[in-house]
Amino acid sequence: MTIREKGYTHWDGQLRERRFPWAPITWLGIRLSFKKKYFKFMLFGSLVPAVVFLVGIYISERIEDFQYMFRGNKQILEVNPAYFKTYLSSDFLLFMMVMILVVSGAGLIADDLKHNSLQLYFARPLKKSGYLTGKASVIVFFLLLLTLVPGLVFIIFKLLFAGDFRFLASYPWLPLSVIGYSLFVTGFFCSYALLFSSLSKNRRYVSILIFAVYLFSDILFGFFYENYRKPAFALLSLKANLQQVAAWFFRLKPAYAVPWYWSLFILLAFGIAAAIVLSKKVRGVEVVK
């Protein structure tokens, strides 16, 4: 007798309250990202700089063996906070992070809006905060994979290659800087991607928005800076603002002569605005039309 002929049968298990009710959303989001075309290639491509910097750390500890490569430019491979800052706020890494948002972040909310699936989520014991946390955690997973994980791996391997703790004794705050900046940049990009993803039902438009706003802000900065030579125009660029804040996290002088906290303020204001828009766009009352 088939299940259908048997009629409806009860499930004999017990529904339980999850500690993290949003966790299935995150795992599904990660799995679906890996199913996308070129995503794996892009993710592994984004990790190439990490491998290069790791090799740099190894070479810095065996600098005598590689002297023929540098001819006096040893400072390039001096592993210090600037080395970490260079990796974590490099143009390439930031660009690849935006590309990951384009591919895996654009559809997170937009697809649910397009296919009316918000109502299915909110018919479950899931709050709006849980839904957004689940979606944001997909981005958090990939971005921390590119920032926090390599940052901590660099410190561990530096200590392993050096065979002592002198590096950590010189910069005891460095692990906190790596963690702090990684979380900051990840948090910013989360709000950035989710904001745009909630603004349209069309994933393509969202992808274009995510990419174009990042790029356009930098072009705008380049245009004004080239014409007027005022460093304050750096505040127009998302990339420059992230780099200014990165300099503060790693106790370095910012690249532009603008107080770092202005950049921090702009990025935080963006995040707060995104949170407000998200709370209005993702609403329970839209569940039943």
């Binding site: 529904l15 309250e17 599904l28 697809d111 649910d112 296919h115 009316n116 699936s117 109502q119 299915l120 909110f122 018919a123 479950r124 014991p125 899931l126 569940v287 039943v288 039309k289």
Partner: peptide, 14 residues
Amino acid sequence: RRYVGYMPEDDCLI
């Protein structure tokens, strides 16, 4: 919501 099943009117999928 834990003990309720809901079948909405609109098409909805992922």
